[in-house]
Amino acid sequence: MVKNAQAHDFFQQLNQDLRHSAFGLPRLILDEDQLKRNIQHAEQQLHKNKHLKPRLVVKSLASLQLLQTVATHFQTQRFMVFHLPQILPILESFSSADVLMGKPMPASTVEYFYLRFTSWNTSNIQWLVDTPQRLIAYLDIARRYAVRLQINIEIDVGLHRGGVSSTQELVALLKIIEAHPEQLKFSGLMGYDAHVTKLPSIIKKADVAYAESQQIYQHFIEIIQAQFPQLWHEELCLNGGGSPSFNFHVKQSVCNDLSFGSMLLKPSDFDSTHLEALKPALWIASPVLKVLENTELPGMPLLNKLPHKDKALFIYGGYWMADYVYPKGAHPHLLYGRSSNQELVNVSKTTQIDVDDYVFLRPTQSEAIIPQFSQLYCYKNNVFEAWETFRE
C-alpha cells in the first residue's frame, strides 16, 4: 500500500508539472532522483569486486547527457557500442573513450568508418570478431587503410548466439592475429551471458548457469595463456555481463570488464529477483485527447448496449513497447485494437481524469524506446531539462 500511495503521489505531481510546463506532446521522462539511487546501488555493488571496471552500454542509455551523467558517477570512459553512428559522439565527447563493439560489424561498416572518419584512425576501438572469415576481411581493411585494428573475440559462454565455441575456433583466430602484428592487435574476449537469468529455473537455476558460463570463459582464458603467451597480458579486456547478470559478476567473476546500462533505468524486461533493489526511472507520458464515458465498438450495437464498467480515453500516440501504469488499471481495449496515433485506453469509471491530463507508461526496454523520442526529459525538483537522444 505504501508503494502504491507513493506511485500515486509521484504520478499526480508529474501530471501537474507536465500540464504547467509541457506543450501537449508525448514525452519520455527520466526520473533523475531514482536514476541516482540506482547508480548509488550499482556503485556499492561494484565495490565488492574492485578488479571489475564498469563499461556503459550506449544503446541502453542512448542520450549523450545521460551517458555523461552516468559516466561521471562511475568515473569511467569505457563504452560498449552497437551502432556505428553512435561511435562518433562518444569519441568526440569523451577524451579517453575506450569503445568495445557489442556485436560484429559488417566489413563494409568498418571500412566506411576508416574511409569517412580518417581523423579517428588511431582511436581506441575494439572491433568484435566471431569467425576467421570476418577477421580476414578486417585484416584486408587494416592493410588498405594502414591502420592497426584492435580485435576482441566474441566467445559463446552459453547464450548460443554465435561466437567462438571451441578451442579450435579460438586458436584459428589467434593464429591469424599473431601472424599479422602490424595490422592486428589482440585486445581481449567478450562473453555475453544474458541467458543466465532468463532460463526458467525448472531448466537450470541461475547460479548453476552462471557457474557454467564462467567455467567456459575460464577455459578460453587458459588456452590463451598456455598456447599464446605472447598475446596474453593483464591489461586484456575480458568483458562479460550485461545488466541481467550484473549481481553475479560483482560477487565473483573471471572477467575484469563489466557491461551494463538498462538496469539503471529499469525497464520492465529487467524485472527479476537479481535486480529487485533497482527501481524504474524511465516513463512515457502521453496527453489525453478525449474522454468518453463508454467504449463503443464499431459495428457492434448490441454489445455497446451492455453495461460498461470503464470509460474510454484516446491518447496522443500509443502502441509503444511499454505497459500502462497510471492511472491504476489503465489498459488497451482487447477488441478495439492498438493504435500508434490515437490509442484507446480504458480506465475505471471512478478514475478522475480530464482532457489534457497525462497517462503514464513504463517501457519494456530502454534501447527500443529512447530512439523513438528526439528528447529525453530529465525530471528533478518539478522541472524538466531536455536532453537530446541518439535517434539515428
Rank of each mutant, 00 (worst) to 15 (best):
E92M: 12
A209W: 15
L35D: 07
P363M: 06
H249W: 10
M300I: 05
Q225A: 05
Q133H: 15
I125Q: 02
T350N: 13
Q65G: 08
M321W: 09
P371M: 08
F260E: 10
D130P: 11
F186Y: 13
A97G: 10
D356I: 03
E154C: 07
V345E: 12
H41K: 01
G337K: 07
V291M: 14
S339L: 09
H41Y: 05
Y324V: 07
N4C: 05
V254G: 03
H308P: 07
F384L: 04
V171G: 14
T389I: 03
L264N: 08
P280G: 00
E182G: 11
L67F: 03
K309D: 06
I90E: 10
V196E: 06
V208A: 10
K279A: 13
E169L: 00
K251M: 08
Y358T: 02
L313N: 08
W320E: 12
G162I: 01
A5W: 06
M1S: 14
Q227C: 05
P200V: 07
L61M: 14
I353A: 06
D354Y: 10
E388L: 09
K53C: 15
N15F: 00
I141K: 15
S213F: 13
Y138C: 12
W320T: 00
Y377A: 02
P89N: 07
Y319A: 11
L297S: 10
F10A: 13
R161I: 01
K305P: 05
V347A: 06
D269F: 08
K59Y: 09
A137Q: 15
D357A: 05
N152Y: 02
F74L: 10
C378M: 13
E296F: 14
I141E: 13
Q375R: 11
L14N: 11
F23A: 15
V325L: 14
Q86A: 14
G299W: 07
R391V: 04
G188H: 02
L282K: 01
E212D: 15
G242Q: 12
L66W: 09
L258S: 03
A281P: 13
H160I: 00
S253D: 09
E367V: 12
L265G: 02
C378I: 06
N4H: 09
S95V: 03
V208W: 03
L306I: 01
S187F: 01
I141A: 14
K349A: 01
E92W: 02
S268L: 12
H180R: 00
G191Y: 04
L56S: 04
Q227D: 11
W120T: 03
H83R: 07
L18M: 07
N152Q: 14
I177M: 10
F23C: 13
Q6F: 06
D193Y: 07
V355E: 12
Q126I: 03
